[in-house]
Design a protein around this nucleic acid. Structure first.
Lengths: 199, 199
DNA sequence: CGATTCCGAGACAAACCGTCTCGTAATCGA
DNA sequence: TCGATTACGAGACGGTTTGTCTCGGAATCG
């Protein structure tokens, strides 16, 4: 039951590296299993043996490669707004590098292609970042820096979603200023009642 | 210069209809020009003559078919928050039908695939809706219902982007409650200073 | 050492691609 | 009315990619 030649870690890494490189060179649509196998110096069957689809390979490559923003919790200086401002600035900056943008576009195509891949990517890429935000926001809420009924999950989703939307629309990518504006918005709103002046 | 057989409107519509149907049946990745031509009862060359790529056909099909939410301006009752709440609820509802969701996923894949398509879709689909929001928000700002320095464009982007993000992540689709929460957030914020209580 | 499992390589049929070429159909200007 | 022009449906063509299968060899276990 247990014997036999073990899976080659060398081949596995070569495949993921090749997929990562070709993804950035060609984009998801023009990425082929054939090209991955050739560049990795691997038989095509070795890919088909371990992954069910192109999108599955891409998902693994993205998560094992250095393409996703690092999972860094927001600091806790006691000032929630400053902490989140800095965090969202850095996160947005990581998102807007050429590599990350290509990677996000490719993964979004994979997401549209395959529901299972969408779940994997959300679980392993987006959700952890949202969770870090939620945790920090919950701390602030308990500390009385947010309204007691502040919709913590919604806020986290708005911060992440707004920036990702800007990347996906492929128009003006989000800047540090954009991050600041969104953070200011979710904390102070824009209504003319109950708003600190001078931001 | 001018003579010759004119372009067949019948074939054009048959192609767009076939593309639309196949898009929803199979998704973007598994949609082929071949299948579109066959279902439309049309030669493959007739498609290649008028469209440059699969994504171009899909973009036209989506915009001519009934897949995009209708372009309805937010009402102006004088109460910006109520107006936007209703508008975003309706917009979100349209977005979360099975047809619209499939269409958005397919178009997002096309967007990732092709920069030119991204521009076309943003210009003809997303931007007009954002513009309607911006216009209504600007009216409110001038009327003193928003802070004088309210970042009108950012607000519009946050409203649209947050909802689209929820659709694209393919986890819990956005509900009317989510729309309400986001509208409340951008108007009142969630900070514990300068916030109306009881929402 | 023998059983087992993976390996790289490549043959194979099927699908789709984008281009090209038919013969025909529709519209224009003369 | 008639020739020039352009689009049409159909399908042939070579090229690429797909996913499956098979081969001989390599690695690991008991």
């Amino acid at each position: 039951m247990t014997g036999g030649r073990p899976r080659s870690e060398t081949s596995r890494l070569a495949i993921l590296d090749a997929a990562r490189d070709l993804l950035l060179e060609r984009g998801y649509e023009r990425l082929t299993i054939d090209a991955i196998a050739t560049r990795a110096g691997v038989g095509r069957q070795t890919i088909y043996r371990w992954w069910a689809s192109k999108s599955a390979v891409v998902a693994d490559a993205a998560l094992e490669g250095d393409l996703a923003p690092p999972l860094v919790p927001p600091p806790d200086t006691g000032d929630i707004e400053t902490d989140l401002r800095g965090w969202l600035r850095a996160w947005t900056h990581r998102l807007t590098t050429a590599e990350s943008t290509g990677f996000i576009l490719a993964l979004t195509a994979a997401t549209a292609d395959d529901r299972a891949i969408a779940d994997i990517l959300y679980d392993r890429f987006t959700r952890p970042h949202e969770q870090l935000l939620r945790d920090r926001l919950e701390l602030a809420r308990v500390a009385g820096q947010l309204a007691p009924d502040a919709p913590v999950s919604t806020i986290a989703g708005v911060l992440i979603g707004s920036m990702l939307y800007r990347v996906l629309s492929r128009q003006a990518p989000p800047t540090a200023d954009d991050a600041d504006l969104v953070v200011g918005l979710v904390f102070h709103g824009s209504g003319n009642r109950g708003r600190r002046t001078g931001i």
